[in-house]
Nucleic acid binder design. Structure first.
Lengths: 196, 196
DNA sequence: TCCATATGCGAGTAGTTACTAACAATATAC
DNA sequence: GTATATTGTTAGTAACTACTCGCATATGGA
């Protein structure tokens, strides 16, 4: 038997660096040469791990989601269902955008002509929205009345709030403190209206 | 005296076509060759009207803002201040994203390394947010109490709602009818909370 | 008419980039 | 040790793209 295949571990090890590159540079500006340099390997090595640049990008999209999702799941599991939505909101108000990963999403959104990228983003946003909705529904608890605002719309509005926060950060239109206030104020209002 | 300079009129005539190209293709995929073809001119003609591709893109960003702003101003002026925010919200709930112009914005957001593009987007979002805030403040009228949600945060949340609506449209995550409901429900809630 | 400038047009180029082929070196199981 | 598949490395290429130059032609005013 020859050498064992380490591709899986290598992909896992390099993916954070790949995602970081896409997050900092966007899609087109992230050349395969730049990716190779940041990963400390040759381009041909990357091409043995992924079929092409597009697949590296899609892998980065999925990685980004998993990273936030794991944090959210931890926050969600750390206490009763009622307050978990508030906890996530509070966490995000203080840490939103720290990783700069939303740039991957913006980059992807201007590449939506590609069906594969389109699908990856579709599942990403779909999962985000669904996760938030579940948190809102859980916060309502039993016996509580439904709020004036449906949880589906509230979840979407929270996704939008995150996007607005990203934009305001990216364009330095709000200070860190104001962004925290924005998420707390608008997000809190949406949660209240949804009955959370 | 030689021939009069028609550059200004020509720029104005071509700009909608240029913006349309960027809206459909994004920044990088919009090659100067494609721009020239859509405009029915040679590339060199475009380069006599704008210094470079980047300036064409920035001009498109400004054009996009002016287009929405003119519609909004018309809606805002057509009646008393109190209901104008609701009118704009209602209009957007039915027509949001029809022009596909938000793709220019997404494209720009992954080009924010460039300081000129960055500045153009900064003023774009700043104006959007300020306009919305003014509408909210006007809707409060005199004597009305301030809502629980500050108009600044409400305006940002509405910007985010527009972004979320764009994303959900782009990725076909919501039907047209559901998007209308989303904007009406979440937007109405935000306006109410802000005291509009 | 004639001048000065704007415009139309075609070809070209320097630089970049995603992706590949070929080969040498290496590490495992037997 | 050896066979076999995985890695490291180098070099290269075909395609693309933003941008330019030079020249012919059109146009309006004196």
């Amino acid at each position: 038997m020859p050498r064992p295949n380490m591709s899986v571990e290598r992909r896992a090890a390099l993916l954070p660096l790949v995602a970081r590159a896409f997050a900092q540079l966007g899609y087109r500006r992230t050349t395969t040469a730049a990716l190779a340099e940041r990963c400390g390997v040759q381009e041909s090595v990357l091409y043995r791990l992924w079929p092409g640049k597009k697949q590296m990008f899609i892998a980065a999209i999925e990685y980004v989601f998993e990273l936030s999702a794991s944090v959210w799941r931890r926050l969600s599991a750390s206490g009763g269902g009622a307050a978990s939505a508030r906890r996530i909101l509070d966490y995000e108000s203080r840490h939103y955008g720290e990783l700069g990963h939303y740039r991957i999403i913006f980059a992807g959104l201007s590449e939506t002509d590609d069906p594969d990228v389109h699908d990856a983003l579709r599942t990403l946003f779909g999962r985000y929205q669904r996760f938030l909705r579940e948190q809102i529904d859980a916060s309502r608890g039993t016996g509580k009345r439904h709020g004036a605002l449906g949880s589906e719309w509230a979840a979407w509005a929270l996704v939008g709030l995150g996007l607005a926060a990203s934009v305001s950060r990216e364009l330095t239109l709000l200070s860190d403190a104001d962004r925290t206030r924005l998420i707390a104020a608008a997000g809190g209002n949406l949660l209240s209206a949804a009955g959370g």
